[in-house]
Computed example of a mutant assay.
Amino acid sequence: MKYFVRSLKYFCALCVLCIVLMGLMLMTRTSALSLDDTLYAMFHTDRYLMLFTAIVVLAALYPRFGFVERKVEGDVEENRQQIVNAFRSSGFSLRSEEDGVMVFRADTILQKLMLLGEDEIKVSQYGQWIVLDGIRRGVARVQYRLDSYIHMTRND
């Protein structure tokens, strides 16, 4: 069910993006077609059917490649301050901590909206690794910062 909801959110976001782009093209007069011609072409030609198909396929695949699990060498307890700082500098804050799992969420409404409401990143320990699990954009930012913070701490 979670997969379906994520796909549906991404489908809506892609549709909004297409509508905004078409609207901007019409407003700036960079479109070769008028509004009437655009709407006619959208519902009566194969070109827009292909666009719709591409949007559906991307939305269906998004949960598979849009969410990741990344590892950083370290210890959750020992490197707790570096973890909190890495998330804070990426726009996330600690919301809960249970059974060795830290849960971070985006700080601002805009950031939550940009992440389509999928702003939760979980941090846990797996052997010698700190595991970051969540949306790719958020995890990638935090992973880079956390790795840097941990390396700076080790070198000091």
Rank of each mutant, 00 (worst) to 15 (best):
K2C: 08
Y3Q: 11
Y3M: 13
F4T: 14
V5F: 12
R6C: 07
L8E: 07
K9A: 06
Y10S: 10
Y10V: 06
F11T: 05
C12H: 08
C12N: 14
A13L: 09
A13H: 06
L14P: 06
L14I: 07
L17K: 09
L17E: 07
I19T: 15
V20N: 09
L21P: 11
L21K: 09
L24Y: 11
M25N: 14
L26Q: 14
S31P: 04
S31F: 07
A32C: 13
A32R: 13
D36A: 11
T38K: 12
L39I: 06
H44G: 09
L49H: 10
M50S: 12
L51D: 09
F52L: 12
T53F: 15
A54W: 08
I55D: 00
V57Y: 10
V57G: 08
L58H: 12
A59K: 00
A60V: 12
A60D: 04
L61C: 09
Y62K: 04
Y62R: 06
Y62G: 04
Y62L: 11
P63Y: 07
P63L: 06
R64P: 03
F65V: 08
V68W: 04
V68N: 04
V68S: 04
E69S: 13
E69R: 09
R70C: 12
G74R: 00
D75A: 01
D75M: 00
E77S: 13
N79E: 01
R80H: 13
Q81I: 15
Q82E: 14
A86N: 03
A86M: 04
S89C: 13
S90H: 03
G91E: 03
F92R: 01
L94E: 02
L94A: 02
R95A: 13
E98N: 14
F104D: 00
A106E: 01
D107L: 09
Q111P: 02
L113N: 09
L115Y: 05
L116W: 04
G117D: 05
D119F: 03
D119H: 10
V123T: 07
V123Q: 04
S124L: 04
Q125C: 01
Q125F: 01
Q125I: 01
Y126L: 12
G127V: 01
Q128W: 05
I130V: 00
V131Q: 02
D133K: 14
G134A: 03
I135H: 13
R136M: 11
R137W: 15
G138D: 05
G138M: 04
V139N: 05
V139R: 03
A140V: 14
A140P: 01
V142D: 03
V142Y: 00
Q143S: 05
Q143W: 10
Y144A: 15
L146D: 01
L146H: 00
D147F: 09
Y149A: 11
M152K: 14
T153P: 07
D156R: 15
